[in-house]
Simulated scan of single mutants.
Amino acid sequence: MRKWRSLVAVGATLPVVAFAAACGSDNGNGDAAGEDTGGSLRGNLTGAGATFPNPVFQEWAAEYGSVEPGVRINYQSIGSGGGIEQFIRGTVDFGSSERYLSDEDLDEAATTRGCEGVQFPVIFGSVVIAFNDPALDGMVLTSDAIAKIYDRQITNFNDPELQELNPDMDLPDQPIIPVHRSDGSGTTYVFSHYLSTENDEWADKYGEGTEIQWASGTVGGQGNEGVAAQVQQNRGALGYVNQAYAIETGMATAHVVNEDGEAIAPTLEATTAASELADIPDTFQFDIDNIGGDGYPITGTNWIFVYECGYDDNTAEMLKSFWNWVLTDDAADELALELGYAPMGDSLKERVQAQVERINSQN
């Protein structure tokens, strides 16, 4: 695995991560100095947004460098809220988020750019509940228990409600420190949407969104990296993070009870099972709700945002080339699977490719 792993450990102090598809220094033309660039494209792409897919985005960009070494990709892992804002403002070539663009977002984007925005999913992944204590790995939680922990109704691991859910575990007499995202976050959207769907009290008090007014007694972390670091550094900490960060940092994770009453581990298979239950309209505005069977119930999607106009021809070709490579090359799927993300099925990929072809179509 490449450089992102070392960045996870220091994510609290490095919330923005940039990466390039080509190695070496830029000679000013988008080429890496001293290398046989090959390929047919030359130039730079800039993107910004979700931290959720940052690990796989880095891997994709590095692998794509063997196809188009003259293309450099710089992605700023600043959170979904920032990705939506920068996309609408037109300061990046593409945005990324775990929250799809609402009709209001799309209207604002069209007004700003003078043409329609285009959004499409590229990957699925789980939001996991991670613990500081390895002995808690596999602890069972329900949506109600998670909501009460973040609402500070449950403040200790040996709370009777948690002990009832885990009769075979010797839960510690340890105060719980709930950790949340402090930035505008699609991971927060997925997490809070899940709780709002499953828990009426949470829906009334906190609702859903990329930012939430958290209860006092909770701790914030910048990005998935920052939450992971807070959980690792604080005894009794519990936080919600992208599955990839939990895997790579070796954190213990909870099994979450789904709609059918099954306590499901956040495995790749369980994420895939959940994603296959999603009803995906032509607008690609969807959530993954009420998951039963073998599906993990807190499963989210990453969207990419681009425009139908406003790019120069070279930038448009680079965008199409990169995202079509992601959708069609087996290496892209293999990297996603290795990191704990669930690639899309072939039929959905075909629908998404039609969206990619809309890039700059109105120029």
Score class of each variant (00 low, 15 high):
E262Y: 00
E357P: 00
Q230H: 01
A252Q: 08
A135W: 10
N314Q: 14
P121N: 11
T46G: 04
G300W: 08
S40T: 15
N363S: 15
Q355A: 07
D173E: 14
I78D: 05
V352T: 06
D287S: 12
D26Y: 08
V17F: 09
I359R: 00
S25N: 08
T299C: 12
Y341D: 01
M318F: 03
G90N: 09
F305S: 00
V352W: 02
A21R: 06
N166Q: 07
T253E: 15
F284V: 11
A252V: 08
L319P: 00
A50I: 06
I149G: 00
E208M: 11
P172Y: 06
A228V: 14
D107E: 15
F305L: 11
G30A: 08
H255W: 10
Y100M: 09
L238P: 05
S192N: 13
G114W: 13
D105F: 08
V140R: 13
Q119L: 09
E338A: 12
Q76G: 09
E104T: 06
R42V: 03
D260C: 02
N54R: 07
G43F: 13
S192I: 05
Q163F: 02
Q222E: 10
I264Q: 04
V92Q: 04
N258C: 06
I288H: 03
D26S: 13
P160E: 14
Q285G: 11
A215P: 11
V231I: 07
D105Y: 12
G239M: 01
L106M: 15
P343V: 02
I84R: 10
I146H: 08
S40K: 13
T210A: 04
G261F: 10
S102Q: 06
I88N: 10
E35D: 03
F131A: 05
M318L: 05
M1T: 10
D279Q: 15
N234I: 09
L348E: 08
Y341S: 03
D333F: 14
T187S: 05
L41F: 12
P343R: 05
G209P: 08
A332K: 03
T111G: 13
R113Y: 15
D329E: 15
Q353E: 14
A18H: 11
T253R: 14
E59P: 02
S97K: 04
Q222R: 14
A12R: 11
H180N: 15
A316V: 10
G223W: 01
Y64H: 12
S66Q: 14
P297M: 06
A354N: 11
Q353I: 15
A332Y: 04
L41R: 06
A265I: 02
D287H: 13
V140N: 12
Q174E: 15
M318G: 02
G207N: 01
D31C: 02
L165F: 07
F284L: 12
D312C: 08
T188V: 11
W323S: 07
P175S: 12
Q58R: 04
P15E: 03
Y64E: 10
C115K: 13
S347L: 07
P297G: 04
V92M: 11
T112L: 11
E269Y: 02
A130N: 08
G43P: 03
G221W: 01
E164T: 14
S185P: 08
P121G: 10
N44L: 09
E108S: 11
